[in-house]
């Protein structure tokens, strides 16, 4: 028995010397140290030995097992090191296999960002026609023909009665005509005005908003738009509401944020005022409610509208609006 153990040890050690593959090592381990391996089987025969021999042989057996186990570990370690050496021949700096990546247009991204904020507040996204009746674009918004307020917006005409919408505000009328209060919508989309220079393109994008319900106040308008500005431009964004004029809101307010470029010190972007106008808003004018047949006394509401390009430019530092519609792929891939 003792000889058998020593012979087995020698045999295994010899075999270990020529092991080169991890799989061979594992096979060898199984056949000697495994549950049905030679050493295990040998140890089972201990019981057959006379009682007085058992302790000595037992000690020897354990010693052999420990030695072999150690030796297996050492061979295993050296195989690992060998593997590692081979791995280092890999050039990990080679560029990976990439699939081409696409980009959403920056205007789409900003529009989505704006709409998502309002959707989370409970507004619903709606869309409408871009070739629009004069009635929806002007008249129903309290701008009859020959109204001086029409001068605020140069217009592309299709016919006497049809225009390219100059703002997304016609959606206010279209929605209210078909829905009874409460109404809470945002309407993103393209709008058109005949104007073309570094800060104007004849087509651009707006997002319109409208909330009509019982007891909606100017305070609610301030709260909603403050929440929007904080989510869009950061929670520390300072903003101010100042009186303005839109024919379809009364009172009307422009909303400015503290200039994101100069933090209010005054710079070229904010025309040295320290403030940037980001949207127009106001309480829905009672005339508009009358036009769509709402009861002026029982409800109230606010509306707002903002230019997507302007916000995208403020957020990205872009200073030429025309780049949005040139679609140079290098431009698109920056967003």
């Amino acid at each position: 028995m003792k000889d058998e153990l020593l012979e087995l040890k020698t045999r295994v050690l010899k075999k270990l010397e020529s092991v080169a593959e991890r799989s061979d090592l594992e096979k060898l381990r199984q056949s000697y140290l495994g549950r049905k391996g030679f050493l295990t089987l040998l140890l089972k025969r201990l019981e057959e030995l006379p009682k007085e021999q058992r302790p000595a042989i037992g000690r020897l057996a354990n010693q052999v097992k420990e030695e072999l186990t150690e030796e297996f570990q050492s061979v295993s370690d050296s195989l690992t090191r060998k593997d590692a050496k081979e791995v280092s021949a890999l050039d990990i700096t080679l560029p990976g296999r990439r699939t081409p990546t696409g980009h959403l247009h920056p205007i789409t991204q900003i529009t989505e960002e704006i709409c998502t904020i309002f959707v989370k507040l409970g507004f619903q996204v709606v869309q409408g026609p871009e070739v629009e009746l004069d009635y929806y674009n002007f008249e129903a918004l309290n701008m009859p023909k020959d109204h001086p307020a029409r001068d605020m917006q140069d217009t592309f005409y299709i016919s006497d009665n049809v225009v390219l919408r100059t703002h997304t505000s016609p959606m206010q009328i279209r929605i209210m005509e078909n829905t009874s209060p409460p109404v809470s919508i945002v309407a993103p989309g393209k709008v058109y005005r005949p104007d073309s220079d570094i800060s104007h393109t004849p087509m651009f994008h707006q997002v319109e908003g409208l909330l009509v319900d019982k007891g909606v106040s100017f305070g609610d308008l301030k709260g909603t738009l403050t929440t929007f500005a904080h989510q869009m431009f950061g929670p520390d964004t300072d903003l101010r509401f100042r009186p303005s004029f839109f024919p379809f809101t009364e009172p009307s307010a422009e909303v400015d944020i503290r200039c994101v470029v100069c933090q209010g010190k005054g710079c070229r972007v904010c025309s040295h005022t320290g403030w940037l106008e980001i949207l127009g808003s106001g309480m829905v004018d009672p005339e508009v409610f009358k036009i769509v047949g709402y009861d002026v006394e029982s409800i109230s509401g606010f509306a707002f509208g903002m230019g997507v390009e302007r916000i995208a430019m403020l957020k990205s530092g872009l200073d030429d609006i025309r780049l949005f519609f040139e679609n140079d792929i290098r431009f698109l891939q920056q967003f």
Binding site: T179, P182, S184, K222, G223, T226, F241, A253
Partner: peptide
Amino acid sequence: ADLVEEIARLFGYNNIPITLPAIRPT
């Protein structure tokens, strides 16, 4: 409504307290 705007103007838009509406979705 025009008078309401004049009152708001002189009161100061920035003095009007901020509130949040309870929105019932369309």
